[in-house]
């Protein structure tokens, strides 16, 4: 099972990203996912968490993940020393940041910059979702796009797919 923990602030779309990841994973038959937010009252700007559990068998444990194979920070201010406590062994971290960190486990992407450029607003969730592609085996651009198409409001779909493609094109450039 692959467990992804999302850290964000209310309004950044962390739970939407968690949900899209689960939907994208389940595009293929024989795959199972759970996606859920940290339960309870919500407030814009307040720190919150969301969880995605990906598996090839039905997922029985509906508890919040204690450790993630991937831990995503939609807001850099939430990424703090001690993050290892939540990281499974061999796990990776993805941070929405303009700067690099001197830690091989920590990947960064300027999701605010990309979403600001493409969407006109700093809603970083789909940029981070696209940046997960190389970190979560078994995901494809097509499955992400299909998840956006079937789970986001129609008026947001094309722009968010453009965000995904912008991230993937940039990553391809880096790889070359």
């Amino acid at each position: 099972m692959i467990e992804v923990i999302w850290h964000g602030r209310g309004g950044q779309g962390a739970f939407t990203a968690a949900r899209l990841l689960g939907a994208a994973w389940c595009a293929e038959d024989g795959r199972y996912a759970l996606a859920f937010p940290s339960f309870g009252p919500e407030r814009r700007g307040a720190p919150m968490r969301a969880f995605t559990k990906l598996s090839t068998a039905p997922v029985g444990d509906r508890s919040a993940s204690a450790r993630g194979n991937v831990v995503v920070y939609l807001d850099e201010t939430l990424f703090a020393p001690g993050f290892e406590a939540e990281l499974a062994s061999g796990g990776t971290v993805l941070v929405n940041s303009e700067r690099a960190f001197d830690d091989a486990r920590v990947h960064v992407i300027d999701a605010n910059g990309i979403s600001q450029a493409v969407l006109g607003r700093a809603i970083p969730n789909t940029a981070l979702l696209a940046a997960l592609l190389p970190l979560v085996p078994g995901l494809s651009r097509e499955s992400l796009v299909a998840a956006v198409r079937s789970n986001m409001p129609a008026r947001l779909q094309d722009k968010n797919i453009a965000v995904i493609d912008t991230v993937l094109a940039a990553r391809e450039g880096e790889a070359l």
């Binding site: 949900r19 689960g22 939907a23 389940c26 199972y32 996912a33 759970l34 996606a35 859920f36 937010p37 339960f39 997922v59 509906r62």
Partner: peptide
């Protein structure tokens, strides 16, 4: 509540 009502799955 929540564990089922608010958890997304296929």
């Amino acid at each position: 509540g929540f564990a089922l009502t608010h958890t997304y799955e296929t």
